[in-house]
Design a protein around this nucleic acid. Structure first.
Lengths: 338, 338
DNA sequence: CTGTTAGCGCGTTCAC
DNA sequence: GTGAACGCGCTAACAG
C-alpha cells in the first residue's frame, strides 16, 4: 500500500543507495536531491521505521515502565519524558504494571521483544531480578524514584530523607512535638527513606519517637484514610500529621473532611506530592513537592546520553545516581503552638 | 547479541520453518516441540518483533494520540486502553500533542512511520485534515471524546448535551434560576455540546438565558479562575455556577477558596470530570462524572474489532458512533432555595 | 509434519 | 557521487 524506497527509484531512475543516502543526510547531487524530494512528496512516501529498525538494529523506541498511570505524578513524568525523547526522534512505548511484580517482569520481556533501545522504569519490585533480561541485552536502563541495593543502575532520585526531615522540621519549628507520620511499609524504598527523615528530624530536636504515631501500611488512599481516623481517635492524639505520599495525603484529607475536623485549628497537616491539592484545598495545604519535570528531564537526558555513548565507545559505563532536591509549598494548614 | 531463530536451528538441527511454526502455534511433533522449547530456554531467545513486523506487515502496535497528559482524565483513559490492548498482545505508543495542531499532525506521521496498526486519538484540531495520511493508509482510526462533522470515523463519545442538561436541571430543581456556566469557546466540540445542554435545560424551565452568565474561553484552569472571579463580582451575581470541564472546575474552586466564599451558603456549585476533587473538597462537590474506564474499554475493543476485521473481510466498514451516558455524583455544594 | 526458498523495506559495504 | 548485492530476523508459500 504505502510507497517504498523502490517506488522512488522507479520514479526518479536513481538507485536505492542514493535515495537511502538522501534520507539519512548524505551527499547527493542537488538535481538528484530535488528529484527525490519531489517523488517523496508525490508518492506520500514515509520511511518505514520497522524496516529501518531491522537493518540498523535500532528501533529508536524507548520503553517506559511505570507502576500505575492513575495519578498526576505519573502523567507529568511520562508526558515530559515522551516529549523530550520525541524531540530527539525517539518514540516511547509506555506500560504500567499496576503494581504487580509478575506483570512487571512480563512487561520487560514485552519491551525487549519490541527491541526497545532502552528502558526507563519506576520499579515495583524490591530487587533488580526482573531486569536481568534487559541487562543481558546491554541496553541502557534508567531507574526513577527508587533504586536497588543489590545492583547498580543509572538512577534519578529525590532526596527523600531530606524531604521528610524538612517537612517534620517545619512542624517542629511551629512548636509541635506530638507529630505523627502516615507512611508505607518497609518493602517500599521511598517509605523507608522518608521514615528515616522523620526520625532524624525528631531526634535532632530531642523529641521522643512515639511508636503509635507511626502508621505504616500500603501506599494507598485507604491506608491514609484509615490511619488518619485512627490517629484522630487516639486519647493522646498528635497535634500534627505528616502525610508522606500522594495517595496517603488524599486519604488523610478525606478522613478529615468526613469527620469535620477543622485544620489547622484542631490539627496541623503537611502533605506530599500533590500540588493540585494544595491549590484546591481550603485552607491551603502545606506540601512537599517533587520536581516532576526535572525528574523526567534528567531521566530522558541521561537515557539519550547513554544511547549516544553506546553508539561510540565501549559498552560499559559507570552508573550515575542523580539526587534532586524537593521543595516546600507553603500553606495555611499548620498552626503555630505557643 | 540476542539469540535468533537461526541459533535455535543450529541448536536443534530443525529448520527455520518448523521453529517459526512453533512460535506461531502451528503443529509440531512433540519431540521437536520439546527440543525447541529447551533451546529457547537456554539461549534466552525472544522473538524479534521488529523482524516479525517487517515480514507480516503488522507491528502489533497501536498509536494513541492525546491532547495532554496533565490530567487524571487522560491517565485513566490511556492506562485502560494500554492494559486492554496489551492483554491482546498489542503494544501502545502514546504521544501527546500538547494541544498543538501542528504537532498533532506531525505525531500522526511519526506513528505512521512506526507502522502502527491503528490509531486511537482525542482530536485537538477542529477537522479531520490531519488524519488524512492515516486514512490513506487504511488503518483503523478511533476517535475519543470528540468527532468531526466533515468526515465520519469510529467514535466513542459521551452524551455531552444530556450531561450538561442534567447538571443544570439539578440546579433548577433546587430552585435556582440565576445559573451561570463557565465553558469553552465555539472551537471546542464538547464545549458547544455542553452549552447546548445548558440552554436546553433553561429553556425547558422557561428561564431566560442571561448572556452575562455565560463565560466562554479556553478550557483552562486560568479561564475557570478568572471567570469565577468575574461572576462573583457581578452586581446581580448568579446563585449557582456550572463548571463544564475539568480544568475549569479546578480554576473555579481556586477562585472560591481565594476569595473565601462559602459554598453552598453563598453560591451553589456543580463541577465536571473531577472525581478526585469530589472526594477531597469540603463540602463535597456535586459533579458530572464521565465513565473513563468504559470510554477506554469501548475504544480499545472497537479498535481490536477493526483490527480483526481488516484481517478477514474487505477493507471498508461503516463507522460506528458509541455514545455513553455520564452519571452524577451527589455532593453538598448545592443549596436549596425556597 | 518438515525443509527450501523467497521476500518484507531499508542500510551498508564494495566496486565503478 | 552512484549502483549492485547482500544481510537484518522472521513469515509464508510451496515441495517433499
Amino acid at each position: 500500500m504505502a510507497a517504498t524506497i523502490r517506488d522512488i527509484r522507479n520514479r526518479t531512475g536513481l538507485s536505492l543507495a542514493t535515495i537511502s543516502k538522501y534520507l539519512n543526510g548524505g551527499n547527493v547531487l542537488p538535481e538528484n536531491r530535488k528529484a527525490i524530494a519531489e517523488a517523496i512528496e508525490e508518492l506520500h512516501y514515509e520511511v518505514n521505521e520497522v524496516a529501518r529498525g531491522l537493518a540498523t538494529q535500532k528501533s529508536r523506541t524507548i520503553g517506559v515502565l511505570i507502576q500505575t498511570f492513575d495519578n498526576i505524578f505519573m502523567g507529568s513524568i511520562v508526558s515530559n519524558i515522551e516529549r523530550i525523547l520525541r524531540e530527539h526522534n525517539y518514540g516511547t512505548i509506555v506500560c504500567d504494571c499496576q503494581q504487580d511484580k509478575k506483570l512487571e517482569e512480563e512487561e520487560i520481556h514485552f519491551l525487549l521483544g519490541k527491541r526497545v533501545d532502552g528502558i526507563i522504569t519506576i520499579p515495583t519490585a524490591g530487587n533488580a531480578g526482573y531486569l536481568q533480561a534487559a541487562v543481558d541485552r546491554k541496553i541502557p536502563i534508567v531507574l526513577l524514584d527508587r533504586t536497588f541495593t543489590d545492583q547498580k543502575f543509572d538512577s534519578i532520585l529525590v532526596d527523600n530523607v531530606e524531604a521528610a526531615r524538612g517537612a517534620v522540621q517545619i512542624l517542629i519549628d511551629h512548636g509541635h512535638t506530638r507529630i505523627a507520620i502516615i507512611c508505607g511499609d518497609d518493602s517500599e524504598y521511598t517509605a523507608r527513606e522518608r521514615l528515616r527523615g522523620y526520625c532524624t528530624a525528631l531526634e535532632s530536636a530531642n523529641i521522643d519517637i512515639e511508636a503509635s504515631y507511626i502508621k505504616r501500611g500500603k501506599l494507598s488512599t485507604a491506608h491514609g484514610y484509615e490511619s488518619m481516623k485512627e490517629l484522630l481517635a487516639m486519647k493522646d492524639r498528635p497535634s500534627a500529621v505528616f502525610f508522606s505520599n500522594y495517595e496517603i495525603t488524599l486519604g488523610g484529607i478525606m478522613a478529615i473532611n468526613e469527620l469535620h475536623v477543622a485544620f489547622p485549628q484542631e490539627i496541623s497537616l503537611i502533605g506530599f506530592d500533590n500540588f493540585m491539592l494544595s491549590k484546591v484545598i481550603n485552607p491551603k495545604l502545606w506540601m512537599v513537592n517533587q520536581p516532576m519535570e526535572t525528574i523526567a528531564q534528567q531521566a530522558a537526558e541521561l537515557m539519550l546520553k547513554r544511547l549516544e555513548e553506546s553508539g561510540k565507545k565501549g559498552e560499559d559505563y559507570e552508573p550515575e545516581t542523580i539526587i534532586l532536591p524537593t521543595d516546600m509549598v507553603e500553606g495555611e494548614s499548620i498552626r503555630a503552638l505557643s
